[in-house]
Design a protein around this nucleic acid. Structure first.
Lengths: 113, 113
DNA sequence: GGCTCATGCCAACTATTATTGGCATGAGCA
DNA sequence: TGCTCATGCCAATAATAGTTGGCATGAGCC
């Protein structure tokens, strides 16, 4: 996971920059779990947890797959994806060169100064 | 910079997770600069740049100091702080243990399920 | 004095993200 | 059938973050 684009880098960083998601990830690092179970473990609502799980999944930090329990219930198990990201000023400098101009853009400043 | 608390980790991640701040940091990695100059280089307003610089400074990613130019003008120079942060699931798991319960909290879920 | 350039800061607005509650579905089980 | 448990999703609100423009200050310079 050494060479991600600036956009991907930001996605990953933004995803990790949240207490909830960090806790979710930590919980899953300790072993997989299905949604409702995880919500109970962490003491947060399912709706909230799902939003965070989706963001984590989108960033590629967790993966999900359905599984049938012994009694036939469909459970959605999530598990953490291993990753390794070494951040340094140089890594940042390189990533910036591949940034799409979203959230920025204006090649012509509005006239300050 | 291997052992930061969960709160600090989140602060750093959140600070880096922005195209503007990433660009600012990259620009400063290439050499120090004072505010107005940097704003022109990046093509953004000073007001905007200052906000981002403050956030970067708060997170310890850049430092600032006043300096007098040859003609006596007070210039505020910023420079990038070297850092190295190796992110892995385990690092996250450890960081989580030192998270203050802000933005989370509710030991008792509201009653979902 | 009047012009330029640098800094700092605020009030106001817009855009995003976070969070809650509720509702609907599908499948075992007594 | 009625109850439980799991999933998914949406509409509405709350809370943050991002941006802009303007205004004030201080210091050289013509």
């Amino acid at each position: 996971m050494g060479e991600l684009s600036g956009d991907r880098l930001i996605e990953v960083l933004a995803t990790l920059a949240s207490p909830h998601r960090l806790r979710v990830l930590a919980a899953l690092t300790g072993g997989r779990a299905y949604v409702s179970q995880l919500a109970r473990d962490l003491g947060i609502s399912r709706a909230l947890l799902q939003v965070h799980l989706k963001k984590l999944e989108k960033a590629g930090l967790v993966t999900a797959h359905l599984e049938l329990s012994e009694d036939g219930k469909a459970l959605k198990y999530y598990e953490a994806t291993p990753f390794s990201l070494h951040l340094t000023p140089d890594v940042v400098a390189v990533a910036v060169t591949t940034l799409s101009n979203a959230g920025d853009g204006d090649a012509v400043p509005k006239g300050n100064n």
